[in-house]
Simulated assay, not measured.
Amino acid sequence: MATEEFQVAVHQAKLSDAISVVQAKPLQYFSDRPLNIAVVGEPGSGKSSFVNSMIGKRAGEPGAAETGIQTTTVKAKDYQHPTLPQVILWDLPGREDSAFASRIEQVDLNRFDFFIIVGYQRFRTVHTDLVHEIRAMGKRFYFVRAKIDLDLEASQRRQPSGCDEKKVLQRIKDDCVMGLLNESVIDPQVFLVSNWDSQSFDFPLLWEKLRSDLLQLKKQAFVFSLPSLSTPVLERKTDAVKKKIPLIVLYCALLALLPVPGFSFVAAMFFFVRFRSQCYREFGLDDPPLTALARDIGKPVASLHAVMKSRSLMPLILWRLPDLVGAVLILVEYCWWNRYPYAGSLVSGVISVFTSYYMLQGCLAAVAKDTQNVLSKALEKMSV
């Protein structure tokens, strides 16, 4: 299984091998992967009716989504697709529904693998906001313009003898496409549908597109799940490295007892850099593995360094600011009290115990998080 192979490679600090495990799998390998599709949009856009059309149900039938003139969807509800394997459609509460805001479930969109934005009438701000959220997660979507039959009926009433159906449909699609292009969406996928007739307008094209994209979407969903799958592996590695921290803290404290102003900071810096380098080796973030990973994914190694927060020394400097207290006491005892700086050395040692412990703990947690960040960055190319 790719999951186990991926986790083993992460445990062995071979991030390049972890990525290769996924790259080597053919699309058909992901056919049994679940795909959670979120149907989102403004209230009243026809999301629930669209879900019913997708699963082949009519309103009121057992297992159908609840529909109505007023807002009916206040909680996310899942519907298993009857023919597409392992595909689950989620009917989500509408956006911008202030009248029902207090009882509408707040849904984390990160839970879902793919999105279908359902709109009605013009391209609106709510659609823009959804596009931004989805793209920020690096995920894909289709835009469905629903209730197209009602638009045609309205056009025919306005122009009983001069209504050109093709021009009306093209004008509506152009409005949607232009709205998406204005948000820098490349190759926007727009479908005009009637929720009451899944054989008319663009519904057949939507089905064809979804079927053709299905395996790629499932692979993308698997790729997005990989950083979280590494969490238990990284936690075990973190627990193993934690056992080394008390001894390092002891060394820092003993050296901080020396009556030399600023020596506590120098010693802490030395041990911190050594500890961080050791963490990088344990997690596969030192230079040789990162260079190999960057080469394999065709990205500069600087792009991987950019997502590693643990490379910054500024947090270390801030953590060691309390060392100034011990240094000042040592200087005061030397220069003004004319005696051996027992108090200053003791204070310096005590401060070093606490600052060194939390500094090293923070470093270890940051390196573990950086491993997930690097994996996510390396997997970006496969999720497009």
Rank of each mutant, 00 (worst) to 15 (best):
A240K: 08
L247I: 08
L331A: 04
A64D: 06
V353W: 03
W337D: 10
V249P: 01
G138V: 07
A368R: 01
W207E: 14
L27G: 11
C335Q: 09
A267F: 05
V367D: 00
L324V: 09
E66W: 00
V307N: 05
V223D: 03
P85I: 04
K218A: 13
L217F: 03
M269I: 13
W319C: 12
M308K: 09
F270T: 05
D78H: 10
L258W: 04
T371P: 06
G68V: 01
C279V: 02
F115K: 02
D113K: 07
L375M: 05
L229I: 11
S212N: 05
L304V: 00
W337P: 05
K219A: 09
K77Q: 09
S161P: 08
S20I: 12
A240Q: 13
E4R: 12
A146T: 11
E105D: 08
A154Y: 10
G138I: 03
K47I: 11
A24V: 01
L313C: 09
P246R: 07
L210D: 12
M54W: 04
S376M: 09
P93R: 06
L109K: 02
R103L: 14
A267H: 05
V273M: 15
Y251V: 15
V307R: 01
L254H: 05
L229R: 09
F270C: 10
G56I: 11
S20W: 10
T73Y: 01
L210P: 08
P261I: 04
A267C: 06
G68R: 01
